[in-house]
Design a protein around this nucleic acid. Structure first.
Lengths: 137, 137
DNA sequence: GGTAAAATGCACTTCCATTGCAAGGTGTTA
DNA sequence: TAACACCTTGCAATGGAAGTGCATTTTACC
């Protein structure tokens, strides 16, 4: 009874060795990772496979995409009870200008943002940049 | 006595025809533009020149960069009294999922964001995505 | 085991960002 | 104004990331 397998199966995603490995890799990381990060961790695997695996995970709300302003898309596992698609559940991300790492601050929900009349808010992306706890100490 | 020339000179930027044109182009646009947008508007100019001009403007706080999550960097003129580098002055950006345009909502300042102990906030990037007023009508 | 569908790997393309270098302008000083 | 240094511009090329088409392998299911 493997937990990860259950998660994948519950989303109707076929369980493959590659997917289990990538899931584990993401799970043990506490920071958001780029495709290249994953690529470096699995040198034997093809970039395309990783790319499509992440895409599959993303479509099934297993990972969420983070745009931290570095220009490179990063990914992180969703929380157990994360509802990424629901606006009110969105948390903020912190990008460290020193070590260049991006972490999910899942405890810090994004405050309600007011937009002008006529505008309809569907999604909010909030990235705070600065120095993380590891670098500020 | 040209206003734009004064602005450039006050920042110790040499006044050139290209720079005046690009500044005017940005000034008449109400939305954030990509490098390609500028490139299309000035087909005779080289992409590199536009790129470096924008970069010069950016370094001197004449334009600010916007990362709206489309993966393509956009630029917009700073407000007259904009202090982009000052955290409390940051406004939010709205990206329309329909027309793909990004506008600066300069009247909507970003609320103070709390970060965990040990983290130092230097900068905040907030992009709201949804439907803009032109498309929602 | 055999079959259909999905996943993987390889090659390739596209797009944007960025840099090196040479040529053209500009501003300054003697 | 002639000469010089410095900045700007244009051309060519590179690099990195994202994405696609197709052939091959793997998986699930009968």
């Amino acid at each position: 009874m493997n937990k990860i397998e259950n998660i994948l199966e519950s989303k109707n995603i076929r369980v493959t060795a590659m997917r289990l490995l990538i899931y584990k890799f993401l799970a043990q990381k506490e920071i958001a990772v780029t495709l290249s990060d994953i690529e470096n961790a699995f040198e034997k695997a093809d970039r395309t496979t990783l790319y499509r695996t992440i895409k599959t995970f993303e479509e099934n709300d297993i990972v969420h995409q983070i745009d931290d302003g570095t220009g490179i898309t990063k990914y992180a596992l969703c929380e157990k009870d994360c509802n990424c698609e629901i606006e009110t559940d969105l948390h903020l991300h912190f990008h460290c200008n020193n070590c260049n790492e991006t972490v999910c601050l899942t405890d810090h929900k994004i405050p309600q943002i007011k937009v002008p009349d006529g505008y309809i808010s569907e999604n909010v992306n909030l990235v705070v940049k600065g120095i993380c706890d590891k670098c500020s100490g």
